[in-house]
Structures are given as C-alpha cells and as structure tokens.
Design a protein around this nucleic acid. Structure first.
Length: 229
DNA sequence: GCGACAG
DNA sequence: ATCTTGTCGC
C-alpha cells in the first residue's frame, strides 16, 4: 500500500492531484488471469456523518459449463472499516470522499487479491482518475471501474443480450465500455482502473456476471457494506 | 448563463 | 448515497 498524498485538500488541490496522478495510470495487459478478486463498495449512515466500506475477497474456483465465464466463486474473507465523512459528494471528486475508508478496509485484509473490482469509474473521468484508478495507484494492483451509471462520455446503446457492449467515448478517445451484464437489463459502465486493458476489464466483468446486473465481487461488497448501517 | 453530474 | 414495501413480470 502506497500513501501518495494526503486527503485533507481543497477542491482545487484535489483536482490538481488528479491531473498529476492520472499520468501514472498503467494500461498494460494483465500478466495472469486473476484467481483472487476483491470487490469494494461504500455506504453512508442515515445522517451521512459516517462512511462505511467493505472489501469482499473471492477466489475463482472454476467456470460454469463452457469456457468464458461466468466464474464460480468461493468466499475467502471480508474486511470492513468506518470513518467520519470528511468530504462532500462532488461529481469528479468522489475518490476524496470514499477512498480513505476503502484504504482502511483493504489494509485489514489478510491477503491482497490479484485484482480489485470497484463501484465507480476508472479512467472514464474528466481528468482520467476516477475512484478505481485512484485506488489502483495506492494499491499498486490491477483495478477495474464498474459503475452503475455514466459520469462522462458518449455511447451507443449496446445490444440487448448479455455480453453485448459498446465503446464509451470522450471525443476521439475511448475511455471505457458500456457492458450488458444481463440480457434486457440496464448496462454497467466499465473502464480501466489501473494495470489492465479495457479488453481485460470487459472480459473480467462479464466473467464475474452471474444472474445479476452487478458483477459478483461488487455485488457482494454492496451487500456487506449495507449490513453495516 | 444553462445543463450534466460516479456515489 | 439515502428516504422506503409491496408488487408485477420473466
């Protein structure tokens, strides 16, 4: 775990940090297929004064029937953390609100996973440093951003069948993909977080998509963190 | 100025 | 994100 900067920053300083860190995000193919995957998610107390985080670690133990997923998983461990909420929600600055608690939860894990799937954007962000990318730099591990809705970018609606996807673009640049994880259900927004390619991110997301819209790691993290409230 | 806007 | 249960449909 790396501490790249402090978190008590002004909005202007936070944006500057994003611009500087974005240049360190690595777009490289995964070295090996991840065998241990962690899902990360946050939740808030009713009055919003406390922030919770849960990291659920899963081990891939096989595949359903044929080849490309979905995976079968085995629960390894779950770590949680809670802190006082210190930063407001501002579109584009989400990581300054949620990353600190996420870091605390992940630090409690007995073993670091091969890859993290995070509820939020990766590089599909105005300054190319969404929550998943920001955390990836601190973890120095592969991360994938898997958000439930769009922050920026334009796209064509993907086909209605599970597995269909279309590129998410910002001008001429492809920043992510809109992926159908379940037939006839609203797609998710996938982007590179750190140390992987968009193709890796899409493939892993689909391999983790079972019968629900939200892929298993993030889905279970959401359940775990919701129980803390 | 107006509209958009992860969780 | 959160306030909130049942209910209609595949």
């Amino acid at each position: 775990m790396r501490a790249l900067h402090e978190w008590n920053l002004s909005y202007a300083e936070a944006r500057q940090v994003q611009v500087e860190l974005a240049g360190r995000v690595e777009f490289v193919p995964l070295e090996k297929e991840p065998q241990v995957i962690a899902g990360l998610d946050c939740a808030f107390s009713g009055d919003g004064k406390r922030t919770f985080a849960a990291a659920v670690v899963l081990r891939v133990i096989g595949w359903h029937y044929g080849q490309p997923g979905p995976f079968d998983f085995e629960h390894v461990e779950t770590a949680t953390a809670q802190q006082e909420t210190r930063f407001p929600y501002i579109p584009g600055l989400l990581s300054f609100r949620e990353a600190p608690v996420c870091l605390e939860a992940v630090a409690k894990l007995g073993r670091q996973p091969d890859l993290f799937m995070i509820d939020g954007q990766g590089v599909a962000h105005p300054r190319r440093l969404g929550l998943a990318s920001h955390l990836g730099l601190f973890f120095d591990k592969p991360t994938i951003g898997c958000a439930k809705s769009r922050l920026i970018g334009k796209y064509a609606e993907p086909g209605v069948e599970k597995g269909a996807w279309s590129p998410l673009r910002d001008g001429e640049e492809t920043i992510g993909a809109v992926v159908r994880t379940r037939s006839r259900v609203k797609p998710v927004f996938v982007s590179v977080g750190h140390q992987c390619t968009l193709e890796d991110a899409i493939r892993i997301t689909l391999a983790c998509a079972t019968r629900y819209r939200i892929p298993e790691p993030t889905r279970l993290a959401h359940q775990a963190v919701s129980r803390l409230r």
